[in-house]
């Protein structure tokens, strides 16, 4: 693991109509690392990550990619930096097939300016073959697929464009146990390819065994960050619920003053 983080977010703040959704939050992520971002609904974790993915514009703070300051004002900018987001609820366009979803907004065209469905499907087969070799339903609209299959399409969509940072919002919330295990395998594979991953969840059990580090937010502020080996699940729960930072964690601005 190199010393310069893949991405650093520093002193990020954003307010919506007077409510400070994210207040002076900092986070970093290294290549091949999985950082779980935890907190209650409304704790600011999704908002913070949407600033990274370009969905929201921050009021203040800096984002650095590989140590250099990055300009991220919209989803397109974020994608240019290799930041890809997989949303649990709004991951895919239901009525079009797998290849069309993988290339949505970045379609491969023939020299005549028409859609090159053959090339898109060929590439789709290649990428899906890497992630989910049993997947065969390339012609079906994705609404016909199972939750796990949809998740692998969503992940394929992200890594197809050489994502370096993957943001996964509640990656396993909609999945059964078997499919959850499958996503776990996918994450291991992505890590080994040097991709940095942010996992967002409000349920610690979803992500604890997948993550290298956890970062907890409460009321828009960072309570603290910790390596999963240095803290217990109960201690993290204390961070989420009470904002109490345990000795094994590095406290943030949102840590309860004792």
């Amino acid at each position: 693991m190199s010393n310069t983080p893949l991405v650093e977010m520093e002193n990020i703040s954003i307010a919506f109509g007077g409510i400070r959704a994210v207040d002076d939050a900092s986070a970093d992520l290294h290549a091949g690392e999985v950082v779980a971002l935890l907190g209650h609904n409304g704790a600011g974790k999704s908002t913070l990550i949407k600033i990274l993915s370009g969905a929201y514009r921050r009021d203040s703070g800096t984002i650095r990619m590989n140590g250099e300051e990055a300009v991220i004002n919209n989803p397109r900018d974020a994608k240019a930096y290799g930041i890809e987001t997989i949303y649990q609820t709004l991951a895919l366009a239901d009525n079009v097939d797998t290849a069309a979803n993988l290339y949505l907004g970045r379609e491969i065209m023939t020299p005549w300016g028409t859609l090159d469905d053959v090339a898109m499907e060929a590439r789709a087969r290649e990428v899906m073959g890497r992630l989910n070799p049993r997947f065969e339903r390339f012609k079906d609209p994705v609404k016909a697929l199972s939750g796990g299959q949809r998740q692998s399409v969503a992940i394929a969509r992200a890594i197809l464009f050489n994502a370096r940072i993957l943001i996964m919002d509640e990656p396993t919330a909609a999945l059964g146990p078997q499919e959850t295990a499958q996503v776990g395998e996918l994450i291991e594979q992505l890590k080994s390819e040097g991709i940095g991953i942010f996992l967002i969840s409000h349920d610690i059990h979803d992500v604890f065994h997948l993550a290298d580090r956890v970062m907890v937010m409460k009321n828009g502020r960072v309570v603290g960050t910790a390596r999963v080996t240095d803290v217990t699940e109960d201690e993290i729960l204390g961070m989420i619920i009470l904002g109490k930072c345990p000795p094994g964690a590095v406290p943030g601005p949102g840590a309860m003053n004792v």
Partner: peptide
């Protein structure tokens, strides 16, 4: 393709640029 995508899921289309 974008017409179909927008009608299918506006949010996904937006996040796809």
């Amino acid at each position: 393709r974008h017409v179909t995508a927008v009608g299918s899921n506006e949010e996904v289309a937006r996040y796809s640029g």
